[in-house]
Design a protein around this nucleic acid. Structure first.
Length: 150
DNA sequence: GCCAACGTTGGC
DNA sequence: GCCAACGTTGGC
């Protein structure tokens, strides 16, 4: 099993939206490295849900991969802001797994708190200038983060 | 709102 | 294939 972290701006799609929807297709990702990670997600993988551009930014919950990636339908939708001219149904470029809501933390684990944890100092999220919106988390990092839940 | 970091685009 | 210009992300 693998562990991941995904970012979302809460005014775009929040953990509460996922809680309400119960399950969601993770679409609209337009970065190749993030795309490759989305494609390698397996059913049962655990995914930390992070609110970016938030006050404060924080890890706010947990979800689970319930379906491996399929072609992201928004790349074919001319009306979508994620439409991609260079993608076709024969040659899709972007892919989306499905996540199921698992848990919303009672207390979000805020970015400053994460920075204080020695074990997390190498975490991708905390690297200077890290903008990657989907990335792997080690099992140690994952467990350290869950241990911070109150 | 500012700006650093980084990815992408396109001219050459 | 280089690299300048530009766009986006995201912390502060």
């Amino acid at each position: 099993m693998s562990y991941w972290l995904v970012k979302s701006e809460p005014n775009t799609y929040s953990i509460d939206d996922l809680k309400r929807d119960k399950s969601t297709l993770w679409d609209g990702i337009r970065n190749y490295q993030a795309r490759n990670y989305l494609q390698s997600m397996k059913v049962g993988d655990e995914v930390l849900f992070y609110h970016s551009n938030s006050e404060p930014s924080a890890i706010v919950g947990l979800c689970t991969v319930t379906k491996t990636a399929v072609p992201d339908p928004t790349q074919f939708d001319k009306k979508s802001k994620y439409y991609d001219d260079g993608a076709s149904s024969e040659k899709p470029r972007w892919f989306s797994p499905t996540f199921k809501f698992s848990e919303a933390f009672e207390q979000p684990i805020e970015l400053p708190a994460l920075r204080k944890v020695a074990k997390l100092k190498n975490m991708v999220l905390l690297q200077r200038g890290s903008r990657l919106s989907v990335h792997p988390v080690t099992v140690d990092e994952f467990n350290s983060i869950l241990a911070l839940r109150s």
